[in-house]
Simulated assay, not measured.
Amino acid sequence: MNIIIVSRKHGRSRMVSSWMVAPVLLFFVLTLSGIGYGGYRLLSSDEKAIIDANAVETWQGRIDQQAAQLEKTQIYTEEQINALRIRLAELQARLTRIDALGERLVDVANLDEGEFDFSLPPAVGGPESGSVQATPPDFVDVLDELSLQIENREQQLRVLNSLLGDRKIQSETFVAGRPIKKGWMSSRYGYRNDPFNGNLAWHDGVDFAGKDGSDIVSVASGVVTWAGERYGYGNLVEINHGNGYVTRYAHCNEILVEVGDVVKKADVVALMGSTGRSTGPHVHFEVLLHGKSVDPAKYIDRVARF
């Protein structure tokens, strides 16, 4: 095979043999093949860099770690929500108890209707001094602050309840009233003619006559210090009311209490009779202050001021 080469400059032709062109063609073929192979290797190396197995494993590990962290976060969030629900329930229960205690104190203190209403929020106010953009506090901090306010309020109410309780105790131990439910005063305190010999004699108490077996009541709360027979008194009940006050109920037909018993105001302690130095059914009533007898009359008509 022969190849004819024509020159444009001289217009002449030259014949070239095929064995002389073969090396040139071979060079071009090898060059193109090298370029192709190099491109293939380059693309192959980029593909391996993109889908490298170690990178895939690393990414998968990160995904698994994030999924586990997300699950822990969800569990923690649910626990916090449940804890807040429990805390709110506790606060609600405490507020209910406070309202109940407040209503009780209002009743005990005999306050005017509407003067202190636990069902209404407290009234607040004041002049406007400009608004301040405040950062909302953390929800848990708000609950803690509310809890502290409730504790302070409960403490104040306990103190108030204690004071009212003391006031009630003072009212109960306040010596006042008649030692009988039915009957009339038959003899007063002071000098009188002795009913047995007619001589002038001192009478340490007042006498209330009535029906035999009728009730004798305590004029104040206290502790029984004597319950039995005593010379001249017959069957006697003696009650210590504290603050130096002692009352005596004599000539009883029957005693219904024992030494050491705690009695309340208006409790029946004995039944009217005529035991001891007596001319008929009645109760001899004495009031002693710091060991000395005083006129019971001022205590009979006494009105408690509590």
Score class of each variant (00 low, 15 high):
Asp52Gln: 04
Gln60Tyr: 05
Thr225Leu: 00
Arg277His: 13
Asp212Thr: 00
Arg158Met: 11
Leu120Phe: 08
Gly210Val: 01
Thr73Pro: 08
Ile150Gln: 11
Arg8Leu: 14
Ser7Leu: 01
Gly130Met: 11
Ser293Lys: 15
Ile5Gln: 14
Met1Pro: 08
Asp261Arg: 00
Ser44Pro: 05
His10Gly: 13
Asp64Tyr: 00
Asp138Val: 02
Ser7Met: 00
Arg97Glu: 07
Arg104His: 14
Ile150Ser: 07
Phe306Arg: 03
Gly39Arg: 14
Asn161Phe: 10
Ser18Trp: 14
Ile86Val: 13
Lys181His: 13
Ser18Met: 13
Leu91Thr: 03
Tyr245Arg: 05
Val283Met: 08
Tyr189Ala: 02
Ser278Gln: 00
Ile98Pro: 04
Gly210Ala: 06
Tyr249His: 09
Trp184Asn: 14
Ala209Lys: 05
Asp141Cys: 06
Ile216His: 03
Ile4Gln: 13
Val263Phe: 08
Gly165Phe: 11
Lys298Glu: 15
Asp138Arg: 00
Val237Tyr: 04
Val268Cys: 07
Val56Pro: 04
Val56Leu: 09
Asp301Pro: 04
Ser278Trp: 12
Gln133Leu: 15
Leu105Trp: 09
Ala67Met: 10
Gly273Thr: 01
Glu145Ile: 03
Gln170Trp: 12
Val287Asn: 00
Ile75Glu: 15
Ala49Trp: 06
Asn193Leu: 12
Ser221Ile: 05
